[in-house]
Amino acid sequence: MTKPRRKLVEVRNLKMYFPIHAGVLRRHVGDVKAVDDVSFDIFEGETLGIVGESGCGKSTCGRAVLRLYDITDGSIKIDGVEIGSKSQSALRKLRPTMQMVFQDPQASLNPRMTVAGIIGEPMDEHTDWSKARKLERIYELMDAVGLNRNFVNRYPHSFSGGQRQRIGIARALALNPKFIICDEPIAALDVSIQAQVVNLLEELQDRLGLTYMFISHDLSMVRHIADRVAVMYLGKFIELAPRDALYAEPLHPYTQALLSAVPDPDPASEERVERIILKGDVPSPANPPQGCNFCNRCPKVMDICREIDPEFRELESGHFVACHLYNDAGQTGASRHEHTQQGEDA
């Protein structure tokens, strides 16, 4: 596999906290740490898959990277331009380079707009093309995503889920973006339609040289589409590796558990699979446990895990993991131990 190694997206220490206000005076009593100190790069032309269970912050991470939220802290560079601290009005001009495909095609299309209106909206916002030129582009995009040109006057309610998702993809492509965040684009679709949409996304990537950040909880689908895969747990990246390395040899205990849960279509091998069953629930992101976020469910938990948050570091080339199992725990742990406050387990 030949990969161009230019970094299109660079995210450093991204934090997205949602404040909790309580009491009569609506005082700020804490934060939901939806995305907590996440750093990663996405190379041009590749697909970075992000997996994790519900509520772990995948979607928030995607939306924060596009600055649909005002992030708490951190830096985001897209195509060399720092957007982490830009105001929304300044971001407006940069929006064409980065687009998003949403999870629920039913909810992400305005029920009162026709297909032409929906696909044409980005052009209305960012270009001063004539009506005829816009229409030409709309038809071009509809052809590209496999929608019949007849549908141009129809409203979203008269489409099936897969067709709606195609409309969503056409809208995202309208301004020739470089980077598209696919926020669980297939989660709301039937399996047969999922394959169509994923194939369409891959085809468009080949043709237009797109870069994807593909958020999903469908591990098999991510394995199919992604070049590199990141695993999220409770607002943090715990493992990030090239696809084959991750699926062949998951390092983090959570990744191992996650991958052992993937069903196998072959009944013979399916019976032999040893499932790692995790106990307990995901802790609240408002009140994560001290030390490693995973320490209260980890089957290989050690003492140090309850005290120190493991560093997200590169173990082999391109394979990042945040786990004490792979740190030469004694030294790195002890040196930072003194700085860490001893406290009760959350």
């Binding site: 980065m98 687009q99 949403f102």
Partner: peptide, 26 residues
């Protein structure tokens, strides 16, 4: 809070036009 308003924000539609184009008709 609907996703199509978020989608409009991701396109870069300013608040005024989000209101006239997406919120008011609905």
């Amino acid at each position: 809070e609907r996703e199509f308003v978020l989608a409009a924000r991701s396109i870069g539609t300013p608040s005024l036009r989000i209101n006239t184009r997406h919120v008011l008709p609905n």
